[in-house]
Design a binder for these strands. Structure first.
Lengths: 118, 118
DNA sequence: CTTATTCATCGATAATCGACGATATTCGAT
DNA sequence: ATCGAATATCGTCGATTATCGATGAATAAG
């Protein structure tokens, strides 16, 4: 499946790390969890109200989550609707992937975009 | 399985984050990957040589990985033998766990220690 | 006892990051 | 065009973090 003793190059290590960094903060975990439990998209205002985190902080974290495609945005009037990217949830790398040298997954662009081998 | 719309308390979010933080650094990813590919335990010196990272830096990251039980240490003479904690690899939380509100896994103490329900 | 080896720890430094308040931007309504 | 609401961005502060070099502790060897 992979080069057996190949020590994993720095670039792949950084890609892996960038995945885990996205969830390496308690506030982002809360936002992701919140968006996942409400099945429907949420506006920033709703997220701010529901999470008790400051507006600029929420916006900042949502941006980070959107950059790694973990959440998807859709502007609607003056509001921004955020929702979970299910594809990103399912292809998020596991520790076993790191250990086994699985190729780093690509970032799915849409909710129905395939992860790697689907 | 879980309280449906319960927004995930801060404490659980921080526990989750602490798991992901362990792998949120490229150097730690490399060390974990390196230890995993060599099936046998490695000394710090071997890890330093094989990874090309400074000795104190390696020692620092190994300490972090050991604190979260991701690697196990065993002193042998003047050397320290590090090896992967397979139990920690297999119970490492996934993004789906966060989304579904799975209870945060406990840190397995030994390689053969059970994760949660095994 | 002395010395060399192996590793952990300390101190310093620079970079990153999270949170906040204030400001800017975007867009709908009037 | 103007106003107001919703959100993004900016500047800053404080805290954490990654890396390095040097020092120190433990142990094995001579």
């Amino acid at each position: 499946m992979n080069k057996d003793t190949e020590p994993l190059d720095r670039a792949s290590a950084e890609e892996y790390a960038s995945w885990f960094k996205a969830l390496a903060d308690a506030t982002r975990i809360q936002l992701v969890s919140l968006l996942a439990r409400r099945r429907a998209p949420m506006t920033v205002g709703e997220i701010v109200a529901a999470s008790g985190v400051g507006q600029s902080t929420v916006s900042h974290h949502l941006k980070i989550l959107a950059e790694v495609r973990f959440v998807l945005v859709e502007r609607q009037g003056t509001a921004s609707l955020y929702r979970i990217n299910e594809a990103c949830v399912s292809c998020f790398p596991t520790a076993a992937d790191v250990v086994m040298g699985t190729p780093v997954p690509a970032r799915p662009s849409a909710s129905e975009g395939a992860c790697d081998g689907t």
